[in-house]
């Protein structure tokens, strides 16, 4: 018997004895059975509340961003977007940026008029490491948690959104989703069965509390996360 078969056999053997449903013990005050057994979308009723209208959701996303120390801007025109990008470039003194092709990133790169390390195909990691910012698109924004959903297909691979010290996300209003169940549903409907090899929910800039539980931004990933939503 190989290892795989041996482990599976031990599991099957062990499972011939059944265990009672969980939570039968006290579980402390406030204990009670859920009204609905877990199933598709059922988490929604227990997770933090999200409003129904676009305004409420954007307000929630904005509030979450503020708490997470994400810089979030809702912009009305492409001109506004271009202006903000140029401002960022000048304030932070960007010399070069990393990006990938996309209907929002393309014009943004042109506006910035800087050398670009493109991660559409194979690229040199050392080049990407020297970039001052990584400009990506995304799959969705999630109001409930202030997260950005990226995949290797939507955001130029695995490293572009984590290696440069500043991650700038370009998104569209239609991409705002209410909550986490909606985000995972989107991953499935958009990609199944041909999933990208990487997907990530990015919730704020990289952080650590490993030294005396004191929050420090920019542990290994980006020190800054900016979301520009058109």
């Amino acid at each position: 018997m190989n290892e795989r078969e041996a482990i599976l056999a031990r599991i099957r053997e062990a499972l011939t004895l059944t265990a009672g449903k969980p939570g039968a013990h006290g579980g402390g005050p406030g204990h009670h059975e859920p009204a609905v057994s877990p199933g598709p979308g059922s988490a929604r009723q227990w997770l933090p509340v999200v409003g129904d209208s676009f305004e409420e959701r954007i307000a929630l996303f904005r509030a979450n961003s503020a708490e997470l120390k994400t810089d979030f801007y809702l912009l009305n025109t492409r001109e506004e977007l271009a202006k903000l990008l140029v401002e960022l470039r000048d304030i932070e003194g960007w010399q070069r940026i990393g990006s990938h092709s996309g209907s929002l990133t393309q014009p943004a790169c042109e506006t910035l008029a800087l050398p670009v390390c493109r991660t559409d195909g194979s690229y040199d990691v050392h080049e990407l490491e020297k970039c001052d910012a990584g400009l990506t698109e995304c799959d969705a924004l999630i109001a409930q948690t202030g997260s950005v959903l990226v995949t290797s297909r939507s955001a130029g691979g695995r490293a572009l959104s984590v290696l440069p010290p500043h991650h700038v996300v370009l998104a569209r209003r239609e991409q705002l989703l209410p909550d986490l169940p909606a985000a995972f549903e989107l991953v499935k409907t958009k990609y199944s069965p041909n999933y990208p090899s990487f997907a990530s929910l990015i919730t704020g800039p990289s952080r650590t509390g490993d030294i005396e539980r004191i929050l420090v931004l920019g542990a290994h990933g980006p020190k800054k996360l900016t979301i520009l939503c058109l």
Binding site: I7, L8, I11, R12, L15, T18, A19, K21, P22, G23, G27, G30, H31, H32, E33, P34, A35, S37, P38, S42, A43, Q45, W46, L47, P48, V49
Partner: peptide
Amino acid sequence: AFQNWPAARQAAAETKWEAINHLDQHLT
């Protein structure tokens, strides 16, 4: 901030219980 943390716990417990009860199938 959760609408119902105790119910979420119970749901999580039941989800893991289900997962472990069919561990061989899920692993394969």
